[in-house]
Design a protein around this nucleic acid. Structure first.
Length: 392
DNA sequence: AAACCTGGCAACCGCATCTTA
DNA sequence: ATAAGATGCGGTTGCCAGGTT
């Protein structure tokens, strides 16, 4: 496909715009709209290429642009969205009214990235830098916990990004899927939405989450705890899928409740970002049977809500279950599973989401990690459900 | 006061994607 | 179905202002 050169045309001006040029461009667009950008410069009497005009308009002259310092709230929004979306500046910008993608990108590169780095958070993965947090701690168990959490956080970043997209695809017809995760304990200071609760009838089977494939694959292909293998396997799966963009109709409530803090994870960095201290729960699991692919399990053993087998053979997940006392009894098969822990069986009160290693040995243990950081992220993403345009 | 350094930001560039004929 | 053009996007560059030596 050939393409005619744009800004390399002889005689076209480059570089900073003069006030006169701005005025010409503004006046023309106000009167005629931009129409074809390519034709605009000639019509407006500008010695610029259309691309340059478009950029000038979208990043600077547009009347609905907010300029000046980013508020703390805006910065938190950027950080959370970046954790989920990565360098997809236009998508991030769609959640920040009146800010351009270019402005957000610049702010990230010049301010936020450095700030996170200083706080010991890797700005690309949004996970704690283990060397920074672990050094001097003198506590091998804590270090191991951190390592474990960092791994899951990294995986979860990918998984949640994917999940929310998938959720957006199917939720219109499947309101129950709000059970599927990370919505409900939002404490994000940047929540811009109003949430709806909807009731649902019998849920249809849910699609298999590819993240489980990744986990399963990792678990079978690599040594437990081998982070590189884990990441590689995860990337393999993610690379298979396109992440196209749906429109969200997610429904969830915004509950808060006290959560037992049993582990020693240091959440100071998240706290510094404006998030509350995070809870960590521990649970016991019990072995259950291997589900058939695509199988939907009902009312089995401890499960008093619906559970869904994953299409990926061994690995599957529980999307909701009843709690009893302080114990969260769940059924998992060998391998890994997602646990969605709700408060007292109230599916709108999501306590945590966790990926569980059961190892097939029976009575395996796992940790439930905080979701507030990612809840906030997801809440932001789903802000688009309340009228904002889809962003993906 | 001048030279140098650094951070911030507007704008450019090239590629990807979408639209249209 | 395909090619060409138009637009969008993200990475990068380079200018400029302010600070430091």
């Amino acid at each position: 496909m050939g393409r005619s050169p744009c800004c390399s045309k002889v005689g076209l001006k480059k570089g900073p715009w003069t006030p006169e040029e701005d005025q010409k461009l503004l006046a023309y667009i106000e009167q005629h709209g931009h129409g074809s950008w390519r034709a605009l410069p000639a019509n407006a009497g500008l010695q610029r290429c259309g691309k340059s005009c478009r950029l000038r308009w979208t990043n600077y002259l547009r009347p609905d642009i907010k300029r000046g310092k980013f508020s703390l709230q805006e910065e938190q929004t950027i950080i959370q969205l970046h954790a989920l979306l990565g360098n997809r500046w236009s998508a991030i910008a769609s959640h920040l009214p009146k800010r351009t993608d270019n402005e957000i990108k610049n702010h990230w590169n010049t301010h936020l990235k450095k700030r996170l780095t200083k706080m010991g958070i890797d700005p690309m993965t949004h996970k704690p830098k283990l060397d920074a947090l672990g050094s001097g701690a003198g506590n091998a168990k804590d270090a191991a916990n951190l390592n474990h959490m960092a791994q899951w956080e990294s995986a979860r970043l990918e998984a949640e990004g994917r999940l929310v997209r998938e959720s957006k695809l199917v939720l219109v017809s499947n309101p129950l899927q709000h059970q599927l995760g990370f919505f409900g304990t939002s404490r994000s200071t940047t929540t811009q939405l109003t949430y709806n609760n909807s009731t649902s009838t019998a849920p249809p089977p849910l699609p298999c989450l590819d993240v489980l494939k990744a986990w399963k694959r990792t678990w079978t292909k690599s040594t437990r705890g081998n982070y590189n293998s884990y990441v590689n396997a995860f990337s393999d799966v993610m690379a298979m899928d396109d992440l196209e963009s749906p429109t969200s109709t997610l429904n969830f409530s915004d509950n808060s409740f006290p959560i037992q803090d049993v582990a020693g994870f240091d959440y100071n960095t998240l706290g510094a970002l404006g998030f509350n201290k995070s809870p960590v729960l521990t649970c016991e699991t019990s072995i259950f049977k291997e589900p058939e692919p695509e199988e939907r399990l009902e009312n089995s053993m401890d499960l008093q809500e619906m559970s869904y087998g994953c299409t990926d053979g061994n690995a599957w997940f529980v999307d909701s279950f009843r709690t009893s006392g302080n114990d969260q009894n769940v059924n998992v098969t060998e391998g890994l599973a997602d646990m969605f822990v709700y408060n007292g069986g109230d599916q709108k009160s999501l306590l945590a989401v966790e990926s569980c290693d059961n190892g097939g040995g029976g009575g395996g243990s796992f940790e439930l990690e905080n979701k507030s950081y990612w809840n906030g992220t997801m809440n932001l993403v789903n802000a688009s459900s309340s009228g904002l345009p889809p962003v993906f």
